[in-house]
Write a protein that binds this DNA or RNA. Sequence first.
DNA 1: ATCCGCATGTAACCCGTTACATGATTCT
DNA 2: AGAATCATGTAACGGGTTACATGCGGAT
Lengths: 182, 182
Amino acid sequence: MTDRLTDFEHLLLGLICAEPSSGYDLKRAFVTTPIGVYQPSSGALYPALQRLQTKGLIQSGPPTTAGVSPGRRRSVNQATSAGRAAHENWVRTPVEAASVSRDLGLHLMRFVMMEPLLTQPEVLAFLCGLRDALAAFVAELDRYTRAATFEGRHPALALDHGIAIHRASLDWAEHAITSLTT
Amino acid sequence: MTDRLTDFEHLLLGLICAEPSSGYDLKRAFVTTPIGVYQPSSGALYPALQRLQTKGLIQSGPPTTAGVSPGRRRSVNQATSAGRAAHENWVRTPVEAASVSRDLGLHLMRFVMMEPLLTQPEVLAFLCGLRDALAAFVAELDRYTRAATFEGRHPALALDHGIAIHRASLDWAEHAITSLTT
DNA sequence: ATCCGCATGTAACCCGTTACATGATTCT
DNA sequence: AGAATCATGTAACGGGTTACATGCGGAT
């Protein structure tokens, strides 16, 4: 019951918390999303919804044709209070400095989903945590660049890339902080 | 035999092509790597090596204690000619514009590994393909930003992030091109 | 009445993670 | 000799991908 959820399950739960949705809605949500790079398959989506249901985090209403007219019956999934609690808990998870690079995309998703749930100070605290973690990561890469000795030019260039994109993330975090405080 | 390889298998094969290595060497290679965010587990590493061996892409020599003195016997994996061919083929794979965001990390790895294998014009062609794909992706995100209407500020900020980091990648690609032509 | 597309699912397969097991080598 | 570490593996488990199955709605 207090099992860990997959990243994917967390995202689904978050989308459902934001708005009760059918499986098909969720699929389209991922397609339409700006980071539409990922399109979940049915074989990933529906089993994940079943797992969330088994854990009591969502419950699916009976198939209805309500809402959209040119559609077939769809069972709408709604978050339970336990589900909303789990989602809010996930959204509040602080940024881990050690895994900031790997989890960056996930943090951005959390940033979007925390808007209607958290107070502005909480959001700013999250962004500061993210900024600090990114600053530490960039510093580490810089340190590595100075310490290491490369053969050839490509390794150094690849490192430059890592530094560049994480510095861009860092700049964004600072921009977001000032943008949200005005 | 002509099965597709996993990304991970491609990386292993590439590392082995660059230098014959034991499983332990490969593990440490990932740890020491600048993007040391990923550390393969034994349960991923050794089965992957076995799969490469089954496909005839690598072959492991008998356990030896040669080389490092304070070590145990390790079986050194060497790439076969088929393995080197498969690796070179992988390195030469052109950048797919549709998946450039998802595969960006992989492309960087390929960029590093292509240094001793490809001619400078080939490397530049790869970088130009990467640059064009990134430019197209950034343009798409820009278009999406103008077209979409958001509720709240976080979604727009998250999109800004996506644009910022991919623009940084794009700038890097252009810098790399000019850096390698001088 | 039939056909096509929507919406939800299911089964087989693959692979990575976690955790444990095993033998060999060096250190005390 | 015994302990600790190195190096290689294996077993159970989870979850994602691909491909297929089903059933209902609207269109011709």
